[in-house]
Amino acid sequence: MSATNSTPVILLHDAAIDEYIATILLTTMPEVTLSAIIVVNGDCITTPAMNAAWRIQQYIRRTDIPLGLSSARGYNPFPWAYRGDCIKINDLDMLQGLPACATPYQDGDALLADTLRSAKSPVTVLCTGPLTPLAELLSTGEGVALQSRIGRLVWMGGAIAVGGNLDPATLPPGVANSYAEWNVFWDPFAADWIFRNTSFPITLFPLDITNKAAIASSFMGRLLVQAKQYPVSNLAYQSYEIVASESFYDMWDVTATVWLARPEFYQPLETMTLAVVTEDAGMQGALIPDQRGRQIDCAKDFQDIDAFYSYVLAQLAR
């Protein structure tokens, strides 16, 4: 597929390690054109997150892609224990010596609006973090016009028929529930607003499918072999090595990203009518079936998980 008929993509992420790998993958896909990257201060710490993002773009020689920082804030902050991973990736030896991200950072909210405004064809918004920046933009006076520029929202978020991923050990007593996934829980009100006030299709990648995309030892072994030959594989291996020993850490964002280029690796999407729980402390952030809710196209499982891993490895062999 040529660049002239590829799909423009805006990436909204909150700077976890898997999201940096998703960024790299997007730049290798002829099926998409990565038009802008917007970071939200969610599962990260702003300065190392922005520095890591910009240094990675330099490392893969894609400084042509605009990078901005959103001013969005959430209701339920990520635990500090999670947010420090961006420091570790920013400190990787291969990224040292590359210039830090210039300050003041580019306004990510303005970048999101400008990229949608100037789009010549429908844009896919790939969100691998909270939906807050998108909800805040689309609820402005220009929101209806900008919404019409979005062809589809692809979101890694939620849990439907599996448990959530809020760890009681990282939250005050009574805050964690067993239903919510972090990208919804960070700002359930933004997710609810998007569900209730937009009309573009939404494709959801919940924990139901991402739980099956572990950073498997077999995958890491093959990536290590590639790392000895390919600089991008080396960056990916060193990055994943930071979290590979954490049993709960999966390829959440890469799962959603690969679908843009290879939907045949996934079972057919299941359309469900879902709503977001916003107020109930015992279920805040949960996605629940509700006939008054929004129709969502949900990815529930892989058709060929081996092909998924092999594709990721092939794209990183650069």
Rank of each mutant, 00 (worst) to 15 (best):
208 D>P: 07
156 M>V: 14
232 V>Q: 06
128 T>A: 08
28 T>D: 08
277 V>F: 02
272 M>H: 09
150 I>Y: 08
276 V>I: 13
75 Y>N: 08
164 G>V: 01
86 C>Q: 07
37 I>Q: 01
217 S>W: 13
308 F>N: 01
206 P>S: 15
86 C>R: 03
31 E>L: 09
13 H>W: 13
37 I>G: 00
153 L>T: 01
101 C>D: 00
114 D>V: 05
5 N>D: 15
197 N>S: 14
270 E>Q: 08
200 F>T: 06
288 I>R: 07
316 L>D: 04
191 A>N: 08
305 I>L: 12
161 A>L: 11
101 C>I: 05
220 M>W: 09
295 Q>F: 04
297 D>G: 05
115 T>M: 10
287 L>Y: 03
253 D>I: 05
287 L>C: 10
247 S>Y: 14
213 A>C: 11
32 V>W: 00
249 Y>G: 06
178 S>P: 08
137 L>G: 00
294 R>N: 12
108 G>T: 06
312 V>S: 04
49 A>S: 15
316 L>V: 13
73 R>C: 09
203 T>N: 02
308 F>K: 01
162 V>G: 02
214 A>W: 06
115 T>N: 10
173 P>N: 04
113 A>M: 08
291 Q>C: 11
283 M>T: 14
183 N>R: 15
290 D>Q: 07
31 E>V: 09
153 L>Y: 00
75 Y>M: 10
237 Y>W: 14
74 G>T: 07
1 M>Q: 11
24 I>P: 00
61 R>Q: 13
170 T>E: 08
240 Y>L: 15
260 L>I: 05
54 W>K: 10
303 Q>D: 09
22 A>V: 08
213 A>P: 02
156 M>I: 13
194 I>D: 01
291 Q>T: 11
306 D>N: 13
213 A>I: 04
184 V>S: 04
199 S>E: 10
295 Q>V: 05
39 V>E: 00
250 D>A: 15
212 K>E: 10
157 G>W: 02
16 A>N: 13
91 D>F: 04
109 D>P: 05
95 L>Y: 03
204 L>N: 04
222 R>S: 12
272 M>R: 15
48 P>W: 00
81 A>S: 07
18 D>L: 01
182 W>T: 02
78 F>S: 03
